[in-house]
């Protein structure tokens, strides 16, 4: 925190050169994100914890109740060759963010890249996953996170179960309870020291109880757990409660690569058309379309301007800084099993 305190606020726009952004650019990118995807909203956080380089009502971005459909440990780590150990790395090949076989210095492991649904999911991480059951592991007495027993208050009979009249107009969900998956609150703060956005996660189990640190790690591929994904006090909460966060030390370099790709593609493929007016929707929807396939078809879309209304003017400048967070979420979605890139429903 001292380091954060002492670091100067970035004033000069550096996002093309280094992948880092200023607080103003963070706000601009956040505005764009909340406009395009209304599930994201600004939050002011705790008053005592406000950062003065950000507007009081725009301290961080939050989206709540993002479902996480399955645990990372249950993902099948197989590629098309059937070799479960053949992890893929996020690499830039030709125009696209693609999957390479070898690891470069700044590459991120994209752990569930080649994932296919398989009939029989092999248990390939025995150290983490004693079974393939998606249910939460029972607390072991040694586990410091779970050492407190949570006894339900005695028997239900003690309370008397409340009976409701039959209600044929209650939709199915109210009888079956709720969605049987975990949900996450995802938060993006601005990290002043690293000058990048930073992602935080607070998870809830299918009964809406907060997940412990170890339970959340089940949603983080083992390549990142305890390395890039760590637990730290959330900077905007008065309670100083620890929250899981993706450490931002490599964010700038990955973002820089993504930006460079967008830029060079823009220059190479699109002849300047001064009359084209920037229109966000088409370009963006292809980028945030959710599936990799869609984002890879983007270069084709750009060669057919009639079909996607506006790509030219966009491509001239490559990635605009207000699209930074959209790219950032793509990047985060690649390393977590939380459906954080749930922008497809809009």
């Amino acid at each position: 925190a001292v380091r954060d305190y002492l670091a100067p606020v970035l004033r000069e726009s550096k996002f093309k050169e280094h992948g880092r952004i200023t607080p103003d650019e963070f706000v601009a990118a956040g505005e764009f994100l909340t406009y395009k995807f209304p599930t994201w909203a600004w939050s002011s956080g705790d008053e005592g914890k406000r950062r003065d380089y950000l507007p009081a009502d725009k301290q961080y971005l939050i989206t709540r109740n993002v479902p996480s459909l399955r645990r990372a440990k249950d993902m099948a780590y197989t590629d098309s060759l059937g070799d479960p150990d053949n992890e893929a790395f996020l690499k830039f090949v030709n125009d696209e963010l693609t999957i390479g076989a070898d690891e470069g210095e700044d590459d991120w492991v994209q752990t569930h890249a080649g994932n296919r649904q398989t009939e029989d999911v092999p248990d390939i991480i025995p150290s983490i996953s004693p079974s393939n059951s998606p249910t939460i592991q029972p607390a072991s007495p040694q586990d410091p996170d779970n050492s407190h027993e949570i006894p339900d208050i005695e028997d239900d009979d003690d309370f008397g179960v409340i009976e409701e009249p039959d209600d044929p107009a209650a939709a199915e969900t109210s009888t079956s309870g709720v969605l049987k998956v975990r949900t996450y609150d995802c938060i993006i703060t601005y990290d002043k020291y690293y000058q990048t956005p930073r992602l935080w996660l607070q998870g809830y189990d299918e009964h809406q109880k907060p997940l412990s640190y170890n339970q959340i790690l089940e949603d983080v591929p083992s390549d990142h757990a305890n390395k890039t994904v760590t637990s730290e006090p959330f900077p905007h909460s008065a309670l100083n409660t620890p929250m899981l966060s993706v450490h931002p030390c490599k964010h700038a370099s990955v973002m820089k690569k993504m930006i460079e790709r967008m830029d060079s593609k823009g220059k190479a493929e699109s002849p300047p058309l001064p009359t084209a007016t920037p229109k966000k929707k088409g370009w963006l929807s292809s980028v945030v379309g959710g599936s990799k396939k869609q984002s890879q078809s983007q270069s084709q879309a750009q060669q057919q301007p009639a079909q996607s209304q506006q790509p030219i003017a966009e491509a001239e400048d490559g990635l605009r800084v207000d699209q930074y967070l959209v790219m950032f979420l793509k990047f985060m979605a690649g390393i977590l099993t939380v459906e954080i890139d749930a922008t497809t429903s809009f």
Partner: peptide, 24 residues
């Protein structure tokens, strides 16, 4: 009138318990 929230752990209308000692 209807509208009690069910306890998803047993499917009945019974109290839920939440332990926040790890964060409070």
């Amino acid at each position: 009138s209807v509208g009690w929230e069910k306890n998803t752990e047993n499917g009945k209308i019974t109290p839920k318990t939440i332990n926040l000692s790890t964060s409070l």
